[in-house]
Amino acid sequence: VDYIVEYDYDAQHDDELTIRKGDIIKNVKKLEEEGWLEGELNGKRGMFPDNFVKEIK
């Protein structure tokens, strides 16, 4: 499942992704941690907030 970024987010920890509006995040999975998703961007896998992105259908 792929998501498109709607709002910029700067990573706060090493396991998070810095994302920018218009980025496409690939292979996204829901995490047990409420409010977070995990996906791949530019060869890096990491977490990001689910309210900054929208699923591409």
Rank of each mutant, 00 (worst) to 15 (best):
D14N: 15
N51L: 07
V1E: 13
I24S: 05
F48K: 00
E6H: 13
A11L: 07
Y7F: 14
L37H: 05
G35T: 07
G35I: 03
P49I: 06
V1S: 12
M47N: 09
F48W: 02
M47R: 08
F52P: 03
G46S: 02
I4Q: 14
I25F: 00
F52V: 07
E40R: 04
K29S: 15
G39I: 00
L17S: 01
R20W: 00
K29Y: 12
R45T: 15
P49T: 04
I56W: 00
L31A: 15
D2V: 05
D14S: 15
I56H: 09
G22P: 01
F48G: 01
I19M: 06
D50Y: 06
K26V: 12
A11I: 02
T18S: 11
K29M: 15
K30R: 08
N27G: 13
K57E: 09
E6M: 10
E6K: 09
E38H: 05
Y7E: 09
K54P: 04
E33Q: 14
K26H: 14
K54F: 03
E34K: 13
G46Q: 01
F52L: 06
I56D: 06
G46N: 02
N42R: 12
P49Y: 05
P49K: 06
W36D: 01
K44F: 06
M47K: 10
K57V: 13
V53Q: 06
E55F: 00
E40G: 04
D50Q: 10
E33A: 08
I56K: 06
Q12Y: 13
K57A: 14
T18N: 11
N27M: 05
R45H: 09
D8L: 02
R45K: 07
D23N: 08
V5F: 02
V53P: 04
D50F: 06
Y3W: 13
I4G: 08
R45G: 04
L31F: 10
E38P: 00
D15V: 06
K57I: 13
E32P: 11
R20N: 07
K30G: 10
M47Y: 12
V1M: 12
K54T: 13
L37Y: 11
G43Q: 10
G35P: 06
M47V: 10
I19V: 07
K26M: 14
E55T: 07
Q12W: 08
I4E: 13
N42M: 11
D15N: 07
K29R: 12
D14I: 13
G46D: 00
W36A: 03
K21I: 12
K29W: 04
K30F: 05
E6D: 06
D10A: 15
D8P: 10
I19P: 01
Q12V: 14
N42F: 06
G43T: 06
V1N: 15
G35R: 06
V1R: 08
V28E: 01
N51F: 06
L37W: 10
W36M: 07
E32A: 11
E16S: 03
I25L: 14
A11G: 14
Y9P: 01
H13N: 09
E16P: 00
Y7R: 12
E16G: 05
D14R: 10
L41P: 00
A11V: 02
L17H: 12
H13S: 12
D8Q: 04
G46V: 03
L37G: 05
N51S: 06
W36P: 02
L41R: 09
G35Q: 04
L17N: 00
L37A: 09
W36F: 08
V5R: 00
V53R: 03
K44Y: 03
P49H: 14
I24A: 03
E34H: 12
K26A: 15
E6F: 10
H13W: 15
D8I: 02
D10S: 09
G39D: 00
E6P: 03
K54L: 07
D2A: 12
I19K: 01
M47F: 12
D10W: 06
E33K: 11
V53H: 05
D10Y: 14
F52T: 07
A11S: 08
V28Y: 01
G43A: 08
F52Y: 07
G35K: 05
T18F: 02
I19T: 03
K21F: 07
I25K: 00
E16L: 01
N51W: 06
W36G: 02
Y3F: 14
G43Y: 03
L41N: 06
K30L: 15
L41S: 07
W36T: 03
G35W: 04
D50S: 12
E34D: 13
T18I: 05
K54W: 02
N42Q: 15
I24G: 03
W36Y: 07
D15P: 08
D2F: 05
M47P: 10
D15G: 11
T18G: 03
F52W: 04
E33F: 14
N42W: 03
Y3I: 04
K21E: 09
N42I: 06
E55M: 05
R45Y: 04
Y9V: 02
K21V: 08
L41D: 02
P49G: 05
K54H: 11
F48E: 01
V28P: 04
E34S: 11
I56G: 05
D14E: 13
I56V: 10
E34G: 12
Y9R: 09
P49E: 04
E6N: 07
F48N: 01
K26S: 12
E33Y: 15
K44Q: 15
I4S: 13
K30E: 11
K29L: 15
K30I: 14
K30N: 09
D50R: 10
D15T: 12
V53S: 07
H13D: 14
E33D: 13
M47S: 09
V1Q: 15
G22H: 15
M47L: 12
N42D: 15
E38G: 04
I19D: 00
E32M: 11
Y3V: 07
A11K: 10
G22Q: 06
E40I: 05
N51H: 07
L31S: 13
K30T: 05
I56N: 07
D8T: 04
G46F: 00
L41Q: 03
Y9H: 07
D14Q: 15
D2G: 05
L31E: 07
K44D: 04
Y7T: 15
R45S: 07
G46P: 00
E38W: 02
V5M: 03
V28F: 01
D10E: 10
H13K: 12
G22N: 15
V28T: 06
I25S: 00
V5A: 11
H13T: 10
K57M: 07
R20T: 09
E33P: 13
N51D: 06
E16Y: 10
K54N: 11
N51I: 09
N27I: 05
N42A: 14
K26R: 10
R45N: 09
F52I: 13
G35S: 06
V53G: 11
E6L: 12
Q12N: 08
E40Q: 10
I19Y: 00
D10V: 10
E55L: 07
V1Y: 15
R20S: 06
F48D: 01
L31K: 13
E32V: 15
Y7W: 08
N51V: 09
V53A: 11
I24Q: 04
L31G: 11
I4L: 10
I25V: 14
G43H: 15
G22R: 07
G22M: 03
F52D: 05
V28R: 01
I4V: 12
D23K: 03
I56S: 07
I4Y: 12
G35D: 05
D10M: 12
P49A: 06
P49Q: 11
E34W: 09
I24M: 07
I56E: 07
Y9K: 06
W36H: 03
L31V: 15
W36R: 08
D50M: 13
R45I: 12
R45V: 15
D8N: 10
T18L: 03
Y3K: 04
E38N: 11
K54G: 04
D50K: 13
V53F: 04
